[in-house]
Amino acid sequence: MTASAVVLGPRPSGRWARRLSAVIIVAGVVAVLLPLAWMLSTSLKPESQVFRSPIEWIPSTFRVENYSEAVTLIPFWRYALNSLIVTVPVVIGTVLTSTAVAYAFARMRAPGLRPLFFLVIAAIMLPAEVTLVPSFLLFKELGWVGTYSPLIVPAWLGGGAFNIFLLRQYFLTIPREQDELARVEGHSFLSILLRVIIPQSWPAISVVAALTFVDVWNDFLGPLIYLTDQKLYTLPLGLNFYKDIYNTQWAHFMAASLLALLPCIVIFFLAQRAFTQGVVLTGRR
């Protein structure tokens, strides 16, 4: 597509369409990056200069100490560790169980499997808020409120409708003959999943892992509802301690937020690399 557009360059309408799309893209990028830029700039300012008008995009005095102070004003590393304690098992559980469920939906034949799949798909359309109260009551009944269990355990029970759907669709692109050949050769279903399906599905699996990581790492509502002990707080909850009823320490808040954001950025770039690598690997025929 792009290549043919370049070849067709001299056609005037094509050129204007390209210019217009460039303008739209640049506008979008600016809209996304502006808050980030403000965040970065604020994190390096003395507190007194934060709301100076007009906005100083490049601070007149750089205050790098904001960062070292931010991580000591609140138990930042403790919260970061707590976030990891929640996020890592959730990512592992989501990847493992959604892969298994998606494989079953993609490959196994059983009566009732199709309606069951549509039921799972329907769950994508269910807003999380709808199930909030019933799930809370359930976890309270189980005595899990105040622990990480309500945040982690559900991820090990299927890994979410959207992830199942994404992986199933990906698995369907792998020719069924590959499974059948392995079956005739004496491989079990699990062996086929591990040796045939998963090695060819890294693009989809890394997307699921990356999206789940970012989702859980940034989750505010879940921890807010289920965690009662401040020692167990995750980063999104912990960041709130820069605010109190009288004022907010914006510079420290922004510095800590940027630090909290770093893992997501790293994950994003890693996933992007895995994605392209996976695509090269699976180039079929």
């Binding site: 020719p175 079956r183 005739v184 050769e185 004496g186 045939v196 060819q200 079929r284």
Partner: peptide, 21 residues
């Protein structure tokens, strides 16, 4: 009997070779 226990080998039209191996 399950396919794997029949001691047969199969060659498909599309060969079904694994691209990652």
């Amino acid at each position: 009997v399950a396919p794997g226990a029949r001691d047969l080998a199969i060659v498909f039209q599309d060969y079904a070779l694994y691209p990652h191996l």
